[in-house]
């Protein structure tokens, strides 16, 4: 799941070197934190969170495959 977020984030931002993805697991729950350069925040969040929500929808498919629950947070750098 982490590699899915890494791939999407790298593909959308201007500063791929600043992309950082962390995965926290506890039981069947996975929390993913995505950090990007400040001026790339808009590119991964989108208007009204449209991009972030689309990424979450894809992430959910990946999580359901392994019976896990996943959340994605885009964190301020």
């Amino acid at each position: 799941m982490k590699d899915l977020i890494e791939y999407i984030a790298h593909s959308l931002v201007e500063h791929p070197e600043a992309v950082e993805v962390r995965e926290f697991r506890s039981g069947g729950r996975v929390k993913i934190e995505l950090r990007v350069a400040k001026d790339d925040m808009g590119r991964v969040i989108g208007k009204n969170g449209r991009v972030a929500n689309a990424i979450r929808a894809l992430l959910r498919v990946a999580a359901e495959r392994t019976g896990q629950q996943v959340t994605l947070d885009v964190v301020e750098p």
């Binding site: 593909s11 991009v51 929808a57 894809l58």
Partner: peptide
Amino acid sequence: EVLIGRRAETLNALQYVTSLIVGKQ
């Protein structure tokens, strides 16, 4: 079906993210 989702939510997300990545490149 897992790629379509309720009200095609997943399918539209897949389409949107693909458009964004292709458009960016």
